[in-house]
Design a protein around this nucleic acid. Structure first.
Lengths: 345, 345
DNA sequence: ATGAAAGCGCTAACAT
DNA sequence: ATGTTAGCGCTTTCAT
């Protein structure tokens, strides 16, 4: 019952009366082995419950560990979970295993995780950078040929491959959608201003306004880092002298809060478009129109980029932009309500 | 730019003019080193970008790999993601890293992942079993002292530690809640019958009925494996000669489908209680009453159990049941509507 | 077709 | 305070 030594190749070899090398040949299908010897070795392996020690193998072969290190802000966030899943299923055929950790959006935990992963000699490193992190310390790794990839947000202080959503264009299309339905006073509710994704989406919002010749009003831009903050923001926006008729919620947390705030106010007449799809979006009343990201595709794109690097592709750093898609369900198609339309001059 | 050899302890030692062992002493804070030597070693380490090779260390120390292998059905599912996150933050202080893979609910992928993890010599193994898997093959590992833990569902063919939600009692309380509000015809909509969690929750449903002296009617038990199936189930249940007045949705997918189905029918008068909380639950109209699980607590409980085992606890297999909590928000408190109440005999 | 020796990077157990 | 030797489990290289 106590921790017993696992069978090694040498154990198996001794059982059969051969050398470890011969067992190794059987295990790796490498070099000739007499059919009968192979039989006996396989039998002994089964009997002893032998499993080759991957650590030892990787070490001797001088190969890196057959893992890919992944640093994400939060494992409970289905967006990152789905990205990770898409990545994992794309690389598993190659014998790569995923090793993950949460940075909790802090630069310090991010660094400590990266450092653990490097110590493990991961085959490649994927990072979703936290807001205040700096990646210059990875330059040496990059120079040494370690495939490095940044996800959802670009690296800072370092040029490297990255995969991101089409944040700007996605946001632009979502806002343009509401403009096309007659809205001119459209609020932007999003995460903290230092976040890359928020900045990009805010740009997209401004792009859409500019295209339509609508002036940018900074009082319509609110921070809604969590549900309650976003709900409060909506209340403020609707209580203003010249209230908005539509809201663009730049991430799922903001969208949830906006919907919540509107529900509390009993307002069903506001147009809303969210960024990032929500499982219950179609159940809401009105059903929520969103700019959907494709997290599984992001994971797959990351896998492809990385595998190309592992296959020796030496081209310069690439950024893959994964398209978003507007899913219209009702909330974005509401026309400006009479009640909310400014009384005019 | 090509894959360059990483600096080793010997490289550092040579730089400084000492032996690898001395460098090792500095790195591991193990044994005395002259202050000045230490300085020079640290300097050289920095200059060469030395990072100790964890694989080599683990191997020499005869320790297992400092990782915990985790097999979950789906990384994109926030429930499992949050469990994993809770576990990870609890074990990180111990220097353990999480290595994960998705089984996609298939026994075959589950086995292949387990096998990869064993080959890596993980320190412990955590598995969320897929419906048709068999864990007898892990008996030898267990006997050899590998800490083994089953999550969310028990192992099959093997006695081992496990952590589960209080599925039965949680479901009982959710259904009892609706009974307390006057409902007697309550439907059960859940996942496929072979799933452990569904079976337990169905038992809880029956417990609640029995307590209230309400007969069990198998025609009120429906399968809603995905949203659409659950929505269709609701339509059937309401179209019956003697329609239900309340629905217990035994998992989040069923709950989403039930809410969706009711919305399509325009029925706001049905009591609904879901199992497992949903991010938008409070935004629904009426807001969704749920039996909430506590995935982070499940992860922490798993970490504690496992760490106790690593510390040598040899007691027999334990099952930790993590409590659920009824969150009342409105949908479970609706009284049976006149329209839906059976006309009586 | 099989084996012997050496070594991957590190550390345990002894020296000195 | 530092060094030597040996070996973790495996594979490479070269013999036989």
């Amino acid at each position: 019952m106590s921790k017993v030594r696992r069978a090694t190749m040498t154990d198996v070899a001794r059982e059969v009366g051969v050398t470890a090398k011969t067992v190794s040949r059987v295990v790796n299908d490498d070099g000739p082995v007499a059919a009968e010897t192979r039989e006996r070795i396989l039998e002994a392996m089964g009997r002893l419950g032998f499993q080759p020690n991957l650590m030892a193998r990787n070490m001797r072969v001088g190969a890196r560990d057959s893992t890919v290190g992944l640093v994400i802000p939060d494992m409970g966030n289905p967006f990152f979970g789905t990205v990770a899943g898409g990545f994992e299923s794309a690389v598993r055929a190659r014998g790569l295993t995923l090793i993950v950790g949460s940075s909790a959006e802090t630069a310090e935990r991010e660094r400590s995780l990266i450092s653990t992963f490097l110590a493990r000699r991961v085959t490649a490193l994927i990072v979703v950078p936290s807001a205040d992190s700096d990646h210059r310390h990875l330059r040496a790794e990059r120079a040494a040929g370690l495939p490095l990839l940044f996800l959802d947000r670009p690296a800072s202080g370092l040029t490297a491959d990255s995969v991101v959503s089409s944040n700007r264009e996605g946001a632009r299309s979502g806002v343009a959608h509401m403009i096309a339905h007659g809205h001119r006073r459209i609020a932007f509710v999003g995460d903290l201003p230092e976040l890359y994704t928020r900045r990009e989406r805010l740009q997209g919002y401004r792009d859409a306004l500019a295209e339509a010749g609508i002036g940018f009003d900074r009082t319509l831009v609110e921070i809604g880092h969590d549900h309650e903050a976003a709900a409060a923001a909506v209340t403020r926006l609707l209580g203003a002298r010249s209230p908005v008729t539509a809201v663009f919620a730049a991430d799922d947390s903001a969208a949830t809060g906006v919907v919540l705030g509107l529900a509390r106010l009993g307002r069903r007449d506001m147009a809303v478009v969210g960024f990032d799809d929500l499982p219950l979006a179609e159940v809401l009343e009105p059903a929520l129109t969103v700019v959907a990201q494709d997290p599984a595709a992001i994971g797959r794109a990351a896998a492809e980029l990385l595998m190309a690097r592992l296959d020796g592709e030496r081209s310069r750093a690439r950024t893959v932009v994964v398209p978003t898609r507007l899913i219209t369900r009702g909330s974005g198609e509401l026309r400006p309500s009479a009640a909310a339309v400014p009384t005019g001059r």
